[in-house]
Design a protein around this nucleic acid. Structure first.
Length: 631
DNA sequence: GTAACTGTTTATGAAG
DNA sequence: CTTCATAAACAGTTAC
């Protein structure tokens, strides 16, 4: 490496301490009084009947909101948004949304809503819906009232739109920059630019060449200034990040790249580029939303840093990171026993005893670098993925759909058997799409039991059709990624903390093609099938996710409200899970905390499988009844 | 066969 | 310690 890479602005740290930082207060000075967290009639504005809100027992800034199924989610979100705004950063501005049905059968966490004091709500989205998200929700413009006319500088917004005329309006022409846009490197990371490129297409897939072209077209720097190596970097990024999925055309002749829908925030260039109206005024609405996280403390200085010394009048980019800066944090809702029903699904808390250490990247000991796992065929990979990616990068944990060798095209199989280094597996055409086994399983041993062998070929004989995303969506079969992406941390940007080590993060697949991000573990039932490993269709092992402040367990999260060291959580987590299994008193979920991040989407979905048998009627039950802790 | 392209992986360093 | 950029080796594919 001869030259130090210029770190894109977006690379600014996004990670946030889970606990609310006092420094955050710096952004809300303009806001009204901090609201007291307790829900009062004044704060509970216009919520449809049946909505229950309660303060989270341990998270001072969070409230649990139970929304009747019939309720209009959007209106609720709007109301919550308003409420969050009122509350300001010190108030309860995060909401765990639980959908409540007349019975709890379908109750689930819809997501978590985090609001910003500034009022630009972090939207909540029912991520069980198909991806990619509708632009209305994924559009980040809400983040900062941005106007696309500020697109600027580097993004010369040339409307190339050969493929996508819509790009023209999507990426409005930027005022010509005075500054020699041709020689200025865009402040975006390759990952971001790739996303911009891919998202600029309606079908959201692009060939490598198209990506090159798009980038060159929109960022002349790469055409005119950058060394040829930038293409290598593009390829590298495509391969490296889980969010990018390579697919081939039905005829197998064309290879194109897509973004995993659940990881796709549908970022487009105009969405992240915003002029800084008043560079010296940190009160810019966007600022609070910038995912500067730790750097937020420094606030303005950081921001200034990204302002061109010469220009100074505009912020080069909206510090919205396409990756996950969001914080998916596990939560656990203490629930009455009644909520725990014997699982009809393989979901289980019965985490097989395993030695997480063996698969833990950190377990490599002193080795600074995580070694890449040995090449394994995809079919051998049994990894568990939790998918809750929200960001660009969310660095998704590998999703692993176990594919039987038979399911692979012969060619692919041959490659697997060959000594070829090429490990990537293409997304298969829908017709060849591998099916999941045990779709309901929420726990995949393989991932968990890494000590045994994460690469064991499960050879699950019976594929399951469930969890089949839109056939046209890249969302199908993420498994055919390289092992590095799909199962183990390895690479120049090593993935950390394999999801498999944290069973509580495992997401079951829900039938009907809907994603179910529920990490909830139900007591292991008879269905617990040890062989079931890898079949989560989506995994969130992309970078962002890895960045999440992880808790060894939801309990830890709730009780500690602090980030815990990532790498030493496996054991604890397992123990906790076992404990949970024992007392059946916990419901776990993930909370995506976007409070301090740019992330706007909530990808949390906690489901309560098998509650249909439960007699509880949500409509008639107050959470406080079975969640005493929630007062 | 060869070059070019594409994709994967490893390695390293800067910045935060 | 993490994230990202960069470089490069290497392998598979494709076009000529």
């Amino acid at each position: 490496m001869r030259e130090s890479p210029r770190r894109p602005i977006i690379l600014k740290r996004r990670k946030l301490p889970f606990q609310k930082s006092e420094s955050d207060a710096g952004y809300d000075e303009a806001d009204g009084p901090r609201c007291k967290t307790t829900l009062t009639p004044s704060t509970a504005r216009c919520f449809p009947d049946g909505i229950r809100m309660m303060d989270h027992p341990t998270m001072p800034d969070t409230q649990v909101v139970v929304i009747p199924k019939a309720a209009d989610l959007q209106s609720v979100i709007s109301a919550l948004t308003a409420k969050g705004k009122e509350c300001g950063p010190q108030g309860r501005n995060k909401f765990i949304l639980l959908s409540g049905s007349t019975s709890l059968e379908e109750s689930k966490t819809l997501g978590c809503l985090s609001t910003e004091p500034k009022g630009d709500l972090k939207k909540v989205k029912q991520e069980t819906e198909c991806f990619p998200l509708d632009d209305s929700l994924t559009n980040i413009q809400w983040l900062g009232k941005m106007s696309s006319d500020g697109l600027g500088s580097e993004s010369n917004q040339k409307c190339t739109s050969k493929d996508n005329p819509s790009d023209c309006h999507q990426q409005p022409k930027a005022p010509e920059k005075e500054k020699d846009p041709l020689s200025e490197r865009p402040p975006y990371s390759y990952m971001a630019m790739i996303q911009f490129a891919i998202n600029s297409k309606k079908n959201r897939h692009m060939t490598l060449k198209e990506i090159y072209n798009w980038i060159e077209d929109h960022f002349p720097y790469f055409r005119n200034v950058a060394k040829p190596g930038w293409k290598n970097s593009i390829r590298h990024n495509l391969s490296l990040h889980d969010m990018f999925v390579r697919e081939t055309s039905p005829d197998g002749k064309i290879s194109y790249w897509t973004i995993r829908p659940e990881a796709n925030r549908c970022l487009t260039l105009d969405q992240v580029y915003k002029p800084l109206v008043d560079p010296v005024t940190p009160t810019c609405p966007q600022i609070p939303q910038v995912g500067f996280n730790k750097q937020q403390k420094r606030g303005p200085p950081e921001l200034k840093k990204v302002i061109p010394a010469t220009g100074g009048t505009e912020r080069k980019m909206k510090p919205l990171l396409p990756r996950t800066d969001s914080y998916l944090v596990p939560i656990q809702l203490p629930l009455g026993q009644s909520l725990f029903l014997p699982s009809s699904s393989p979901a289980t808390l019965a985490t097989p005893p395993h030695a997480p250490s063996s698969s833990t990247p950190s377990s490599s000991g002193a080795s600074k670098r995580v070694r890449i796992a040995p090449k394994v065929s995809q079919s051998d990979v049994s990894s568990v993925m939790l998918c809750a990616s929200t960001s660009q990068d969310i660095k998704e944990e590998p999703v692993s759909v176990s594919v039987t060798p038979e399911a692979l095209p012969s060619k692919t199989r041959q490659q697997e058997n060959s000594s070829s280094r090429r490990k990537q597996r293409l997304v298969l055409p829908a017709t060849e799409e591998p099916v999941l086994l045990y779709p309901n399983s929420t726990l995949f041993d393989s991932g968990v039991v890494s000590d045994v062998s994460p690469f064991q070929d499960t050879h699950d004989p019976e594929p399951q059709p469930s969890c089949k995303p839109d056939p046209d969506s890249p969302n199908r079969e993420y498994t055919f990624k390289t092992p590095i992406k799909s199962s183990h941390p390895s690479s120049s940007t090593p993935s950390k903390l394999p999801a498999v080590l944290e069973p509580w993060r495992i997401t079951p697949v829900r039938k009907g093609g809907m994603l179910d991000f529920s990490p909830i573990r139900t007591p292991s039932g008879p269905q617990l099938t040890p062989q079931r490993h890898e079949h989560t269709p989506f995994s969130f092992n992309s970078t962002p996710f890895k960045e999440l402040p992880l808790f060894s367990s939801p309990r830890e999260l709730l009780t500690c409200s602090r980030p815990s060291p990532r790498r030493s959580t496996a054991t604890c987590s397992r123990e906790l899970l076992q404990e949970c299994a024992a007392n059946r008193s916990l419901t776990e979920g993930l909370v995506l905390d976007t409070m301090n991040d740019s992330l706007s989407k909530i990808l949390v979905d906690i489901s309560f499988p098998n509650l249909e048998d439960d007699d509880l009627g949500m409509a008639n039950i107050s959470w406080s009844q079975f969640i005493p802790e929630l007062k």
